[in-house]
Design a binder for these strands. Sequence first.
RNA 1: CGGGGUGUGGUGUAAUGGUUAACAUAUCCGCUUUGGGAGCGGACGAUUCCCGGUUCGAGUCCGGGCACCCCGACCA
Length: 413
Amino acid sequence: MKLSQLFAKTKKETPKETEVISHRYLTRADFIEQSFSGVYRFLPLGFRVLKKIEKIIREEMLNLGAQEMYLPVLQNKNLWLETDRWQTIDPPLFKLKDRHKKEIALGSTHEEEITDIVRHRVKSWQDLPLYLFQIQDKFRNEMRASGGLLRTREFLMKDLYSFHNSEKDLINFYNKVKKSYFRIFKRCGLKAVCVEASPGTIGGKLSHEFMLISEAGEDKILICKRCGFGANIEKVGKIKKCPKCRSNLEKKNCIEVGHIFNLGIKYSKIMGARYLDKNGKSKPIIMGCYGIGLSRLMAAVVEINHDKKGIIWSKEISPFDIHLIEIGGGQENKIKNETEKLYKNLGREGIEVLYDDRDKSAGEKFVDADLMGIPIRIVISEKTLEKNCVEVKKRDQEKVRLVKIDQISNYKF
RNA sequence: CGGGGUGUGGUGUAAUGGUUAACAUAUCCGCUUUGGGAGCGGACGAUUCCCGGUUCGAGUCCGGGCACCCCGACCA
């Protein structure tokens, strides 16, 4: 992609309504734009990142043996009445009426939907276990949106649901999901902490949250450095000693990016999702559900990986692999020709290159590159061409190195 | 929903109640430039959030709305 063609324009000044760092950088670098309170537009750069995160999550879900589906956003009121969550779920549902004045909800989560599907289809122990997931926009009628993408009223979420014929099988899978979540966050360049949490209005007997330690976070957790115990302060209250090893606990602010729930038979019991076991005895299906907020995750990455100049994307979720800059290539000349050639060659190898072909000063190109945060920067100028080289620099390092142009495809970034 | 704050070109700011609302930046054209937001010249761009009031006169004062941000409860 040539930067001159990209639908994006960086901003020099920080828009005044942006308070948290991720919101500022994502707005200044033109990844996102606010539509109105709690609702955001993903511009081409932001959408690319979102798609990369989605790809990682999808791969990890498929690895767990889960199957991808797509459930409706418009949801039947009657299903919500069955579980008594029509009025009680918090944050509340967005509700609307059709032309016959029938009430409908915009999906904020899909336990009702998925349980409805499963109760009509799963009849036998032989149909279990079953793992289904989707990646879809969710709508939540929050009291207040805040922190840019950190808390919005419409957001992209991955929700996975699992169905089992024994508690033991559920716990086994639950632990697999935990590992899978750690891998997902790691691939996004983050180190997550898993803590005990309270299940809220999703319910169930046990839940764990995946937290990223960050000042911008709204949650507070207590963690034990010695044994690794961790819990949301909401769940355990103001304890000072670790309940497992009696050491002192540390309090940290963090961003919740994932939450997994052992639902037990909460939904299957109410909604009548049952199966026949090996003895022909009817039993409620044991369920789990597992969520990750992708758009929040994107903001969290920026919150954690940035410096004074801008964003620092990790390799797997960066909108492009390489930021290619020409200096002094304003007219048709050797520099421009060499850069074009390199751009095409890298592209042919499947490397996603953002090529800054604009007729702008070197300084401006560097500033934009730093702000956008693509992890590898390659510069071509008269200086480098004298040695038949290009200059390679990593976004998170100061040092630059010269690499022969004809060696660049063998170069390990 | 309670509390606090802010609304002026795309963005950031300025303007004792007094001409045609100013500056920077962004954008467009021309020339000149190219290693850390370059220079010169020209141009485009604003019913000063909305409605009402006070006044000879309102961006500015008053009343009422609306929007957005922050704090609280909640959440991926």
